[in-house]
Design a binder for these strands. Structure first.
Length: 391
DNA sequence: AATGAGTTTCCTGTTT
DNA sequence: AAAACAGGAAACTCAT
């Protein structure tokens, strides 16, 4: 599926542009572990087998983890690979990085880009006429052409341009309340940031910290065991930030009778396999509606956005080894709660989230291996967005 | 209406 | 023994 590869490239290069200034290196054997706190997910593909994770995937033990070097903290301010050189001297990888950056920056639909035609170095790119760029990139071609012209014409402006770029990024980020900035529509943060101008989650900004939820924010704890609230949001009027604490964390998972198997409530059954024990009963009492997340919010996007905005999610996840594609759940249940919040599913747990991630990874490994083998491997290529089908 | 994608949920077996 | 983890299977929503 070519589009898949393209999207993968986009994320790969966006990740690289955002975080890395070095050439990507091939990674060692893949390792996935979706477990409890401190467990590590490694999504590398060099040795991925079509059979899935069996034999090449396994948990990283605490002792193994303890031996790892403390990961460097990565920030948005780190320069993209292409920022240090003139476009004429860009490598193919740098060209891809730059294109991916522009795609992201302009919120352009990458699925419409034929990335197979992007296999060119900087010199070739600079020789592309506007029409050619339009042909390959559509409306984005104009933007690329203008940017290229600026980059190539001002020899002395390079540094200032980089600074400007970084400032822009920073500004966009800070102005995220008005313009989603680095967050795309599918970002787990977009709506929260837009929502009434308040911190949507205690995990963001300065207000959150381990065990330190904001006094003014919707107050759910990492463990979800304290401060029960009656914010039983409905899909019709509630915001994403509403977190239903009548979930299994507050009320024991098996503490309530479930609706009878196959017995629909209000015509439609809830998403997913019916719960064996009925929380639905309580949902009925509380006037809850069915929960479903709007299309366009995928788990991989959610995870990606957490990872690429470390300044926002500090304490939730972090890169363990970016080049090897290893990231770490620092507060797994909190991530799950946030995901559940996004999907309006107060029953989300890390167990379920990790199951979904395993499925994504498996799907990825089964169907994308041929893509990986023909593409330069970087973290992003092994990052799991590729499981998404694009028209 | 049928189908596929992407989950969500439950469950069981394995590993730590 | 218990917790953590992996993965099968069924069921769901949404988009096409």
């Amino acid at each position: 599926m070519a589009a898949t590869c393209e999207i993968s490239n986009v994320f790969s290069n966006y990740f690289n542009a955002m975080y890395s200034s070095e050439d990507p290196t091939l990674a060692p054997a893949p390792l996935t572990t979706f477990g409890t706190e401190d467990f590590v997910l490694t999504l590398n593909n060099q040795h991925m087998s079509p059979e899935g994770p069996v034999g090449c995937v396994g948990p990283q033990t605490r002792s193994q983890r303890d031996r790892t070097e403390p990961p460097a903290v990565l920030h948005l301010a780190e320069k993209a690979s292409w920022t240090g050189e003139r476009p004429q001297f860009w490598s193919k990888t740098q060209v891809l990085d730059w294109i991916s950056y522009q795609v992201e920056k302009n919120k352009y639909d990458a699925s419409s880009i034929d990335f197979s035609r992007c296999d060119m170095d900087g010199a070739t790119l600079c020789n592309c006429a506007l029409e050619e760029l339009r042909l390959v990139f559509g409306p984005l071609g104009d933007q690329l052409h203008a940017q290229l012209r600026d980059l190539t014409s001002s020899s002395s402006d390079e540094l200032s341009w980089i600074i400007e770029l970084l400032e822009k990024d920073g500004m966009t980020f800070q102005e995220g309340l008005g313009d989603s900035g680095p967050f795309d529509q599918g970002s787990p943060f977009a709506q929260e940031l837009l929502d009434d101008g308040r911190q949507a989650s205690p995990y963001y900004g300065s207000s959150y910290g381990p065990g330190a939820p904001s006094p003014g924010s919707s107050d759910f704890s990492t463990s979800g065991t304290d401060t029960p609230q009656s914010s039983h949001s409905s899909d019709s009027g509630g915001s994403d930030v509403d977190l239903d604490l009548t979930d299994s964390k507050v009320f024991p998972r098996d503490g309530f009778p479930d609706y009878k198997k196959g017995e629909p409530k209000h015509g439609k059954r809830k998403r997913g396999r019916p719960r064996k024990l009925s929380k639905e009963y309580w949902d009925c009492l509380e006037g809850k509606k069915s929960k479903h997340a709007p299309r366009g919010t995928h788990l991989w996007e959610f995870i990606r956005d957490i990872l690429i905005h470390p300044e926002l999610n500090e304490g939730l996840m972090k890169w363990e080894n970016r080049h090897e594609g290893v990231f770490k759940f620092l507060r797994s249940e909190a991530v799950a709660q946030l995901w559940g919040q996004k999907k309006k599913n107060s029953n989300m747990t890390y167990e379920k989230l990790s199951r979904a991630m395993r499925l994504i990874l498996r799907h990825l490994m089964r169907e994308r291996i041929e893509i990986y083998s023909s593409a330069p491997l970087t973290l992003g290529h092994s990052f799991f967005p590729c499981a998404t089908k694009v028209n």
